[in-house]
Design a protein around this nucleic acid. Sequence first.
DNA 1: CGCCCACTTGACCACGATCAATACCGGTGG
DNA 2: CCACCGGTATTGATCGTGGTCAAGTGGGCG
Lengths: 246, 246
Amino acid sequence: MTTTRPQSSEFLAQRENEQFMLSEPCASCHVQPWSACALLTPERLDRLACITTKLRLSKHDILFETGTSDDHIYTVISGALKLYQNLPNGQRQIVGFPYPGDFLGLGTQPKHDFTAEALTETTLCQSSRHDFARLQTDLPELEHGLLQKAFETLFSVRTHMTQLGRRNALQRVASFLLQLVQRHDQGSRWILRLPMTRADIADYTGLTVETVSRSFSTLRQRKLIGVDTVGNIHLLSPERLRALAG
Amino acid sequence: MTTTRPQSSEFLAQRENEQFMLSEPCASCHVQPWSACALLTPERLDRLACITTKLRLSKHDILFETGTSDDHIYTVISGALKLYQNLPNGQRQIVGFPYPGDFLGLGTQPKHDFTAEALTETTLCQSSRHDFARLQTDLPELEHGLLQKAFETLFSVRTHMTQLGRRNALQRVASFLLQLVQRHDQGSRWILRLPMTRADIADYTGLTVETVSRSFSTLRQRKLIGVDTVGNIHLLSPERLRALAG
DNA sequence: CGCCCACTTGACCACGATCAATACCGGTGG
DNA sequence: CCACCGGTATTGATCGTGGTCAAGTGGGCG
């Protein structure tokens, strides 16, 4: 884990100018429209830029870990992470894959309940909770945007819950793929890059690696998907895939 | 579904006084400390009281339904509800059982994605989104409290997700019971009133009614619980139950 | 070239779903 | 008060999906 410019909030006051120079202005941030700061006006975005720094993670770097406290909040700029919980028996449940525009950080608990790990080279926008809170009193839209994002993820988590409870293996894998595609029109519509391993998909869908693999094979045999390499999936028939997923 | 005092926001201004007289003041609300309004000072609570009304539901009454829009937000005062989604194949997944203190209502989507139905006689505190939003600009603590509640439910939903993905039937039922007990110390610590049916528990845990019933029987045989009537459960050995749940 | 790790495929087994029968409980009316 | 009825819960028997264990394949990187 490498911070491009490690920065504690105490030094912030006297370095605001420098920070502003070094930071990309938020206005040019390409995930801004989908992030919590979407509601801010350009002038206000500049004030936000003063308290944010960029963070770069390599594959397998840990952003934060279960049980640690953390005075920062994050927004994913590029790349992707996995957010998971380790169970006592050595099993692991992935509760989400934060993608660009997604918000990460402590809610109100003093400590993290999940671990966040980078799946690929990932960049994040970081700011201290303290600075952020100070700014919030001035910029109520910010908290509003945060609330909006929280409700969005709440919705997606609940939706995913219905997947886990009531669908068979093939349906789970199918809707996982659709979920990724619709969250992320990366370039061409029906080619999907999977930054996560089969094991990650298993831990997300509540299946085993073997069953995930078998499901991919079945989908391939039925010509619903094409598997170029393990991480490159073509959706050959999104409609039939959607019908299958329900 | 019966509203004690149906109230559209247009008439609010001229009737504020009357409302205030009719409403119980929020300060004396017994769920207030656990709800989104916990952060407000007494004087500010009075202003909140002006925009809220009480709502009473009987068993099986629908508070809101999937696909409908709704300009209100709710906090459960007493009773309990189930929040669920119907799947195309006729199955149903319950994503939560809102209990006193819990917040209910649209996030940012225009329409509800879930249906909320009363499990018993239930009372709620209702206010229009519009009035609430107006108040929010004056009372930033309110939005803060809302955000806090949202993060709390996000956490509990994510935790429940790990239940669905990675635990067997007995573990799911065991942790369901523990979850209810710790969320709700109703009177004596280890006696649990279940307002929901076995079918509801099945739809929440992702099992079938039969399996839920079998799990209850197994727990009873192992002397982990005592079943007085279907809705009255004694937790005879919470430690062993917790050990089982993991 | 060879090693390691991720992925795939196969054979078998167990847990929970399904189908079916019975028991129980609450409410209603005679 | 009891008899009846409908919905809910329990228990049993069988089947199928997906987990487990094991072997084999492939790709990336030193």
